[in-house]
Nucleic acid binder design. Sequence first.
DNA 1: TTCGTTATCGTCATGATGACGAGAAAAGGA
DNA 2: TCCTTTTCTCGTCATCATGACGATAACGAA
Lengths: 230, 230
Amino acid sequence: MSYPVFAVTVDLVVLTVREGRLHVLLVRRGCEPFLGRWALPGGFVRADEDLAAAARRELAEETGLDGPGGHLEQLASYGAPERDPRGRVVTVAYLALLPDLPVPTAGTDAAEAEWRPVGRLDLAFDHDRILADGLERARSKLEYTPLAAAFCPPAFTIAALRQVYEAVWGESLDPRNFHRKVTSTPGFVSPTGGTTEGEPGRPARLYRRGDATLLNPPLLRRKALDDRSE
Amino acid sequence: MSYPVFAVTVDLVVLTVREGRLHVLLVRRGCEPFLGRWALPGGFVRADEDLAAAARRELAEETGLDGPGGHLEQLASYGAPERDPRGRVVTVAYLALLPDLPVPTAGTDAAEAEWRPVGRLDLAFDHDRILADGLERARSKLEYTPLAAAFCPPAFTIAALRQVYEAVWGESLDPRNFHRKVTSTPGFVSPTGGTTEGEPGRPARLYRRGDATLLNPPLLRRKALDDRSE
DNA sequence: TTCGTTATCGTCATGATGACGAGAAAAGGA
DNA sequence: TCCTTTTCTCGTCATCATGACGATAACGAA
């Protein structure tokens, strides 16, 4: 039996919260096609490499960070025949949520890399669509899982966690109700015993991630966006 | 730039509810590898074919049905280097939810096809894992979307919809509370005006799918299962 | 000390849900 | 015909989660 031949890439939607806004990691393409255009970081899967391993490798190459604390999961795959002018390329997109980090160092095949606030971008390939899907996944994940903590350093305050929700969802939340919800949901966060120091206002207790993987009941947005279908 | 060469397949997790139990469509493999073993239906993506189009084509070939009423969505991709002895094959899995249909006719490359109750199966390749991911996705989707109606014919009773939930979740629901929830959630279902006839008991009103894409608030399972992580 | 700021705790009304009672509307048998 | 069985549909009530918001605690700065 004969069958068509494909190339397979991984592309990364790497999100973080900086200065109260949600940012995505972009690279300026250093080779054709779309030379000079902004795109999601990514690259070809190697001959003997698992998809998840390729995603982790690309993430380490682009951000210089592969340590724990963040989150990486498969997002979706994209394989329209015309999506890459070089030929038949299927890309497996991954979604990464990271705490705020120093400015990333450019990888080998990327001329530049930088954090950009999410919004109207005009990316190479079908990366606008991939980014949109990644954003919707991230917003939805925050409702049903404690993954917001993946945007935070190992120890964080409830207020910092709330600001993650506000940045990702783009809406403001009542600090008192949010505090009640987070601290009363078993396994969401657990106190470290420490507090903040030197900040304005009353010191805040520090927490780390709990061991829950699912929030029950979930923490729902006010306005549910359209479901992504197909 | 050179890069490794892959084959790309689509595999389908096709689910339906028959006699109150959740069933998955399996085919017996008619060629190597895993000849004679049960597997998910699927096949190679053609040279000029989109991934979703390939999934729809395979679904039509295996079930003989491509009409509306069901639901098809991308599930996840699997690309471990050793997952197919023929070489580097990445598969994009799709999840299909269909109303109960006549026994499927075997496709060209499948010796047999049949509905099997979900449970301990021993499938070819990594299809046990793909099936498990598909089941968890389906269970979760029923919580947050009105997709349970995809398992039902165009007009259905509330009781039939409840039996879908009971089959997919494997737990029984209170008929009265379920009725209240479904009929009071805007856009979940809308009455057709008709009723059942000839059935035992009081005739039931018939409904069709509403126009909502998301249930807010959701209809949650009692026991949340583990989140699928990557 | 006083004020501004932020964190944390409480209160109250409202809405969703689980448990369950009870009537409505059919088929079928005595 | 009349009763029983079955299933659908509507209500009731206690409980829990949530939104709105008041009040107090604990810091730094003026």
